[in-house]
Design a protein around this nucleic acid. Structure first.
Lengths: 251, 251
DNA sequence: GGATTGTCAATTGTCAACAATTGGACAAGT
DNA sequence: ACTTGTCCAATTGTTGACAATTGACAATCC
């Protein structure tokens, strides 16, 4: 039996706005990482009772978790026939990056049009972190990745479009994107890439500060296209899988 | 090759993608329309037992339905405290149109880069319908809206990015977007607007046929921005609610 | 009075049992 | 060899009962 929530449970001391993580949510997140980490092969069946005994609960909460995974696109579900893990290929990852680029581009554009000084200031602080990390020698790729994620999170959360923020932060972040990015930090942030990423984020900040919305969108998209290409190169080596570069959008 | 649709192949004669509609899905869809149609006030509580007795089932399926609605962003859910209908304001609708524009723009761009002849041909057929409907006098707005939806559905379904197709066709279509567009066809397609929409779609088709991807994206976005503005104007009158036009993205 | 604590009904969370469906195995027929 | 039909075990769908938590209100204390 896997204990997801180890330790004593704080019943009262709950932070402001923090939601209690329900058991189904915990299970869903746990299975998510399992799927991404390849613990399920593509198309492998996921049985309710199996997970129930694994986590030491009944099938009820497990059902909820599986349905959540279906909504997030991590499993394919067929009524009365069960759930099957999706197959995460390199092509899928490319697709996800492209979608993310489009949405983050919109977020940046919205933000630029609003000229929200506070966000730009906060972003500049986060970018200062990037600068420091990239200047320092031997910054671990995952450390830099986290700092970059903070920059992106800032834009996503405060772009002014609540629907978009929700999509980027909750619905999609818990799908493949979030897991690729956070739980399995790719080591594509080489020193060279770190410097490049810094420049790219500075470009976004500059465009945001001056309210040039089209340019902010373009700069933001470039960030994700470059991240995508770097990720693919890394993953191709790691997996020994080749992918066609024919339709990689460039700008 | 990307295979998001991993899993068993349907043994019986069930069409591709066609699934038996489960009870929870039916309930979820039913409550969705209720929320959109204003049968729940914004923030109104949704009780499980209430829905269970209403639909004549136990609380189990209802729970599933409510959790699905939460994933789609139609209800706010707080553990152990219940679900509350969201408040659909005009601003929300603007946000949704903007997101849709960004994603459909990406779809068009992908499609243009692939120069998929079949899709362009099919799209031209659908556009021919638009032409005929707009030329005819007295075409009902909702009839035209359906024809436009077909054009959009074509692009979304066959853009070549499976992840995006899923997002546009399943995850988001069942949220506010699908309901605004389909179940409650707005009557903003006046004769003048019909002619304009026709021209807009012809521009998309032309860009797709010649593979000019940036132009295809731009043309597609314009369609949604214009639809957004028309929808807002209509809804402002219908609801007597005013909305700031300060940050309506224009291109 | 204002704040804290105790109590309780309403509601959600979880469980275990039962019902219904599926897919595969196997046999018989063509 | 191929199809067709019938069983059956495995699995999912649904239910009703029970446990746990919440929010409201009343009682109590300072």
């Amino acid at each position: 039996m896997t204990n997801i929530e180890a330790g004593p449970r704080p019943t009262t001391s709950r932070r402001r706005g923090e939601r209690t993580r329900t058991i189904p949510e915990q299970i869903a997140d746990h299975v998510s990482t399992a799927i991404i980490n390849g613990e399920y092969r593509g198309g492998e069946r996921i049985r309710e009772q199996e997970l129930a005994t694994l986590y030491g609960v009944s099938r009820g909460p497990v059902r909820e978790a599986i349905r959540a995974l279906e909504q997030r696109g991590l499993v394919n579900f067929f009524p009365r026939r069960g759930a099957y893990a999706i197959d995460v290929t390199l092509d899928t990852i490319i697709e996800i990056f492209n979608v993310r680029a489009a949405l983050m581009g919109l977020a940046a554009r919205d933000l630029a049009r609003r000229k929200h000084r506070g966000v730009v200031a906060d972003l500049d602080v986060a970018i200062a972190d990037l600068r420091q990390l990239s200047k320092a020698r031997g910054t671990p790729p995952e450390r830099f990745a986290r700092a970059v994620a903070r920059c992106g999170g800032l834009i996503a959360a405060r772009c002014g479009n609540q629907y978009l923020s929700r999509l980027l932060g909750q619905q999609l972040n818990r799908t493949l994107w979030g897991l690729i990015w956070r739980e399995r930090p790719l080591d594509f942030f080489t020193p060279r890439r770190q410097l490049a990423a810094l420049k790219e984020w500075e470009a976004v900040s500059a465009a945001l500060a001056t309210g040039r919305d089209a340019e902010a969108e373009r700069a933001m998209r470039i960030i994700f296209f470059n991240a995508r290409d770097a990720a693919i190169t890394t993953l191709e080596k790691a997996r020994g899988e080749k992918v066609s570069r024919a339709h990689l959008i460039k700008d």
